[in-house]
Design a protein around this nucleic acid. Structure first.
Lengths: 125, 125
DNA sequence: CATGCATATTCAAATATTAGAATATTTGAA
DNA sequence: TTCAAATATTCTAATATTTGAATATGCATG
C-alpha cells in the first residue's frame, strides 16, 4: 500500500484541477465573497442578504443562483423563505486565507542582482 | 496597546479586503494558475513557460504582465532572459488549498427538512 | 554597429461578465 | 380562490476579459 511519494518517483504532483479553477472564478467577485462570508456565519435568506449587501434583489438572486450552480451553496425552503447555506467545505478555509495578513513578500532569488549573468537555474543560455 | 479581541467586543471581524478580491480575480484563470504553480517550483523564464504551457509567447507575456501588475510575481534579468519569480507569499498557500481533496460537503442545517416551517434562524417570518 | 534572440506591446475581434428593468413564479395566509 | 410576500427568470446594454496577429523593444554578441 505504502510506496514512494509521488515526488520521489518523478510522477507529476497533482496540479490544480480544472474544476477548482472554475470554482475560483465563481468566487472571485466582491458580492459573492460577501455572500459567502455571511453564510459562513449561518443560514441566510435572500432578503437578509439583500439588506446586508445593499444591492437589488434580482441581482442577489443571480449571484446566489450562480453559486448554487457551482455546488458551492444550497438552500432549503422555510415557508416562503429560501434559506441558503454553505455546502462546499473549501469555502471557509479559503476565506480564512483571504483574511490572513502577510507582512512581507518573498525575497528575490539569490541569483540577483539583475545584471549578474549566467545564473539562470534552468540551464538554458 | 493590547485590548479585547475584535470579536469579544462586537466589532466587525475583518472581512475580505477589496484588494484580496482583486487578487483572486487576477489568479482565477487556468493559464495563470499553471504559471503560478510552476513558479512555486522555482524561477522560470518566459520561454520555459511558453513551452510548458504550450501557448504563444505574447500570450504568456500578457499573463505575466498582469500578474506582475498585481504584485504577485516579479522578475530579474539574466542576460536576455527575464527570470520570473513568486513574490506574494499568499500564493503557495492558496495553491495548497486548491489541491486539497474534500470528500464531503457540509450537511444541510438541522432546521431541514424542507417543509418544516418557522425555523428560520434570523427571526423573520 | 548590425544582427538575432528573448520578450513586450498594441490592436482588434470574439466572448464573457455584470447589473438593471421588467416580469414571472411560488407559497402561505386570509 | 385571491392576494401579497419572497424570490427567480429573462432580456438587454455596458463593460471587461481573452486571444491572436503583427510589430516593437532591449540586450548580448560578433
Amino acid at each position: 500500500m505504502v510506496g514512494k511519494s509521488a515526488s520521489s518517483v518523478g510522477v507529476k504532483e497533482p496540479s490544480v484541477s480544472w474544476g477548482k479553477v472554475e470554482l475560483l472564478k465563481a468566487i472571485a467577485h466582491p458580492v459573492r465573497i460577501m455572500i459567502l462570508d455571511e453564510l459562513t456565519k449561518g443560514v441566510k435568506c435572500v432578503s437578509d442578504l439583500e439588506e446586508f449587501l445593499d444591492i437589488r434583489q434580482p441581482n442577489v438572486s443571480q449571484h446566489l443562483g450562480l453559486l448554487r450552480m457551482h455546488g458551492i451553496i444550497d438552500y432549503y425552503m422555510d415557508g416562503r423563505l429560501r434559506c441558503y447555506f454553505l455546502k462546499d467545505p473549501f469555502i471557509p478555509e479559503m476565506l480564512g486565507l483571504l483574511k490572513k495578513q502577510y507582512n512581507e513578500d518573498f525575497p528575490a532569488p539569490v541569483c540577483c542582482p539583475v545584471t549578474k549573468r549566467g545564473k539562470y537555474p534552468g540551464g538554458r543560455r
